[in-house]
Write a protein that binds this DNA or RNA. Sequence first.
DNA 1: TTGTATGCGTTATCAG
DNA 2: CTGATAACGCATACAA
Lengths: 329, 329
Amino acid sequence: MVSIKDVAREAGVAISTVSKVLNNYPNVSEETRKKVYEVVDRLGFVPNTVAAALSSKKSGRIALLVKMNLKTQAIDEINMQYISGAICKAREMQMDVITIFYSMISDMNVEEMTRYFTAQSIGGIIIYGMDKEDMVLHELIDSGNFKIVVVDAPMVNENTSEVTIDHKQAQKDVACKAIEGSDVKSILYIAGMKNGYVTDLRLEGIREFVQEESLELTVKEGDFSELKAREITFEYGKDTDAIVCASDLMAIGAMKALIEMDVFHPVCGFDGIILMGYVGKQMHTVRQDFAGISAAAVSELQRLFDGEAGQKVLLPYELVRLKYEDIIR
Amino acid sequence: MVSIKDVAREAGVAISTVSKVLNNYPNVSEETRKKVYEVVDRLGFVPNTVAAALSSKKSGRIALLVKMNLKTQAIDEINMQYISGAICKAREMQMDVITIFYSMISDMNVEEMTRYFTAQSIGGIIIYGMDKEDMVLHELIDSGNFKIVVVDAPMVNENTSEVTIDHKQAQKDVACKAIEGSDVKSILYIAGMKNGYVTDLRLEGIREFVQEESLELTVKEGDFSELKAREITFEYGKDTDAIVCASDLMAIGAMKALIEMDVFHPVCGFDGIILMGYVGKQMHTVRQDFAGISAAAVSELQRLFDGEAGQKVLLPYELVRLKYEDIIR
DNA sequence: TTGTATGCGTTATCAG
DNA sequence: CTGATAACGCATACAA
C-alpha cells in the first residue's frame, strides 16, 4: 500500500507538506504543490480515509440515519433514493459515509448514541424522516456534539440545518391541479402520521386551499398507511367529490378502493414514487427529487463542517402525473 | 470520549489486556476478563472501529458493491433488501459497512480499485449482481487481495464464496406451478440478460422442464427489461399458451401487455417483489429472501476472515403468489 | 514556506 | 497470563 510517507519520500518533501498540499492548505509554494501532485498520481496514491478520520476529529465521516419500514416497498423507494443520492454526492465531496437504520439504535439513549457515533469517528449526521416524538434525536441535536442536517424537520441552530421542500405550498398546488376541471365541492383529506412534521405543513396547505376555494373539508388520519387510506376511502369516499392524500401510497390505497367501489373521484398523492405508474388510473402528485434532496443535505453538512451556521434549505418540487408508459424502461 | 486507555486505568490492567479481553483472546484469566467487562459497561465504553481498522489490517470493514442504475428512479426493492439485510447483520457481527454503487468505480482498473478499497481499510467485499463481462471484478477476485462473497455468481476459491439459491430448480418449480391446471402446450420464455450468470441457470431450468413435460419452448431475450418483455409479449404472446419470465418486472410487463391484448395466459415471474401485488392479476413467482441472502453473505465473509476457505452457500426459496390484500398494511 | 514531533485509539509482538 | 511498546496512516501544533 502506498502511503503518504511514500509520496513524501518520492517527492523529497516532508509528510506534513504532502498533507498540507492534499488538504489545500494556504501556505504551500506552487512549486512543491506541483511536485507533490505529480508524485501522487504517478504512484496512484489514495489517501486513507480511515487514518484521516482517526487523526482529525473534524473529519468528513458522516452517517445517514434512515427510518426504514421493513414492510412497505414504496417507502423503500424513497429511502433508496435518499441513500444513493447521499452516497454519490459524498463520494464526490470525498466524504466517508455509513448507513444506519434507525431501528438499529432506537433503543439507545443520547449518551449511548453519542458514544456510538463517536466511536465510529462520525462528525456529521443526516437524519431522514424524523418526527416530533423522537426525543432522543432531539436531544442529540441539542447536545451540539455533531453537525446535523435534518430532512423535512424544522431543526435549525448553530450546527443543525434543515433541507426540505415547501410542503404547504406543494400540497395546495397538487390539490388545485387534481380538481381542476372537475366540479368539486368537498374534499376528503387523508393525512399522514400525527407526529410527523410534514403532516402539519401539508395539512395547513390543504386547509388554506379549501378556504380560498370555499370547499368543504373532511380530514382523516391515514398514518401514511395504504391500508388505512383504503379503509377510510371505503367509509367516506363516496360522500366527497375528491380525495387528497398526504402520500402516494395512501393515494394508491384510496384509488384502488374507489375502483372497487366503482365510483370515480379525482385522487392525488404526494411524493412522486414510481409505483404510482402501476396503478392504472393516473393521479396527480408532488414529485420530490429525493436523491437531489439528499445530495443537498450532504453539501449542507459540508457547510456546517466548514464552520458556517445552520440554515434552512428549500428545494424545488414539481407536479407530475405518472403513466405506466413513462416509468417502464 | 472514553477510550480503551480509560478502561485499562479504571480496571487496573494494561491496555493490551483490555484489547485481548475485547477480542476474545484465549490467554486471559477469567478474573481479569470479568473485571474488564465490569468497567467496560460501567463506563459505557464502545470500541472505536476506525482505530481498530487502522491498526489491524484484517479488520471487519466490508464494502457492499451494489449495481444500481442511478440515472433513472426505479423501484429498487431488491437492492434495498440486499443493503438493509447486510447492514443489519453486519452490525450484529460488529462489522463496519460501507455501501458503494458500481457506477462510482466502474471506470477503474484493478489496481485503482484495489487502492480504493485498501485506502478505506476494506478487507472484505460483497458483490451483488455481477455478470460475466465484469472483467475488472473478475480480476479483483483473482487477485486474492480481498475476501469476497459474490451473490449469484459461481466464484469460489480460497478466499471467495458464493451465496445463491438454486435458480435452475426454482425456475422449473415456478413454471410447473404456473401452468398446473391449465392446458398448456407451448411456453414463451422471456430470459434475462445474456451475460448474467443466473440467466443461464434459469434457462437451463426451463429447458429441462419443457423437455420433461414435452412442451414447446420459445425463448426470447428480455434483458430484465419490463419494456422489452412487454414488446416481446405483444409480438409472440398470443402464439403460446403461457409466459414464463426470468424476473418479476418482466412478468409485470408481459402481464400488462396480455391484458391490453385482451388474452389470458398464465404468466409467472421470478424474485417475489412486492410490486407484483399491485398488478391486479396474480402471478406465481419465486420468492427470494434478499435480506436473508445478504445476511448470509455477511456471515460467509466472516467465515473467510476467520481463515476458512470459500464455499458455495445455497439458500432456500419459496413459491408465492402475491395478492394486493397481502402486501398492504 | 517547510520540516519535526506528537497524538488519534487500536492491535499485535514480544518480554517478563 | 500480563504488560510495555511499536506500528497503522494521517493531521497539526510548533519549530526552524
